[in-house]
Amino acid sequence: MLRMFNTVNGQVEQIKTLENGAWICLSDPTDVELATVSSQTGIDLADLRAPLDDEERSRVDSEDDYTMIIVDIPTVEQRDGRDHYETIPLAIIISAHTITTVCMQDTPVLHPFMEGTIRGFNTYMKTRFVLQILYRNATMYLRYLRIIDRSSDDLELKLQHSMQNREILQLLELSKTLVYFTTSLKSNEIVMEKLRVTEKLNSLTHIKQYSEDEDLLDDVITENKQAIEMANIYSGVLANMTDASASIVSNNLNNVMRIFTIISIVLSIPTLIFSMYGMNFQDGMFGMPFTNSRWGFFLVIFVSMVITGIVAWWLTKSRLFK
C-alpha cells in the first residue's frame, strides 16, 4: 500500500501527488509501488526492498542523496486465538525533499502520525519526525512488554493448579518473544547511539536540525534503555518460572512414584501369603497353619490384612518415603 501525507496548515493530510516535504508511507508494497517511489525519489530499489526481509539487521546507511535508517519494531498477530509478538524491520529513508518509510506490514507505530495525534509532528521536520518514530517505537515495546508481564502472571496462576503442556508451551513462547525483543532493542540502541552526535546526524542527512531534537534523542535512548531493562527483568522472571515449573513437575512425579511404590509393597504381602497357601502340602506336622481348621480361610485373610495394614502404616510414616 502506497500512501502520501503532508502537513497543511498544521494538519496532516493525505495527498495524491508527491510534494516537497511529503511523507511517503509504504506498507506491504507491491513491486509497482516500489518502482514508482524509486523513480520519483531517486532511492535505490534495493534499499526500498531491504526492510521487506524480516531478517534485515538494524543499521544506518548513508548515500549521496539520502540516508536510510533501519530499526526493528514490535508487531502482534493472532494465532490459535492468542496474540503472538514478533519484531520486523522498519526503514526510514530521508532525502532532501521527502521522507519515506517502508515496512512489510501496516504497523500501528505509524498510525498516530497518519491521524495527526502526535504533538509537534510536521512532515517537513524530518529529523524530528525520525526521532518521534523512534520514540513511538520504544513506547510500543514498553506497552507490549507490560502485556507480556500480565500474561506471565496469568500463566503463573494456571501453573499452580494445572501442569498441562499447554501452559508450559505458552511459557516457552513468551520466553522466546522476550529474546527477540531484547535482541531487537539492543540493535536499535546501536542505531540510536550513531544518531546521538548532532554533527554526525547533520552530515548524514544534510537537513536542518532543530533545537529540541537533541533532548528528544536523549528521551528516545532513555525509553529504549528502559525497554531493554524491562525485557531482561521479565526474561529472568520467566526463566525462574520455567525452572520452578520443571521442579514442580519433578516433585509431583516423585509423589506419584512414592504412592505407587507403597501400594506395590503393600500388595506384595497378601500375594506372598496366598501364594504359599496355594502350594500342595500334605497333612501333618509340616502342613500350613489353619489348613485343618473350619475357619482357616477367614483366619488367613484376617492375618494377611493385619500384616498388610501394619506394613502400610509403617511405610507411610517411614522417612524413606517422605
Rank of each mutant, 00 (worst) to 15 (best):
R136V: 00
A138T: 00
R143L: 07
A91Y: 03
T127E: 10
F121M: 12
R136K: 09
G81N: 11
R119Y: 08
T123P: 08
T98N: 15
Y144Q: 03
H111R: 15
M140D: 12
T107I: 13
Y144T: 01
P108V: 02
Y85Q: 06
V76E: 12
Y141E: 10
A138Y: 02
M140W: 13
R128F: 04
T107Y: 04
D106A: 11
I94D: 11
T117S: 14
Y135I: 03
G81V: 11
F113D: 08
Y135R: 09
T98C: 11
I93R: 07
D80E: 15
T123F: 05
Y141H: 07
H111K: 14
A91D: 05
P112G: 00
H97N: 15
T87S: 04
F129V: 02
I92Q: 04
K126W: 06
L90A: 03
R136G: 10
A138L: 04
M114R: 15
V102C: 09
L134T: 09
G116L: 04
F129H: 01
Y124S: 14
Q78I: 14
V76Y: 00
R136H: 09
L131Q: 13
Q105N: 11
D83K: 11
R79K: 15
I94Q: 08
I88C: 00
Q105A: 09
Y135T: 09
Y144N: 04
Y124A: 13
V109E: 03
A138I: 00
I93E: 10
R143V: 02
N137T: 15
R128Y: 07
E77A: 12
Q105R: 15
Q78P: 08
H97I: 09
L142A: 10
Y144C: 01
V109W: 00
Y141R: 04
N122C: 12
V76H: 00
I133P: 11
H84P: 00
C103A: 13
T107H: 05
M114V: 05
T87G: 02
S95L: 05
H97C: 08
T117H: 09
V102K: 01
V102H: 00
A91F: 01
Q105W: 05
Q105V: 14
T123L: 06
I94W: 08
L134Y: 06
T127C: 05
T123G: 07
L90Y: 04
I88G: 01
D83Q: 12
F121R: 06
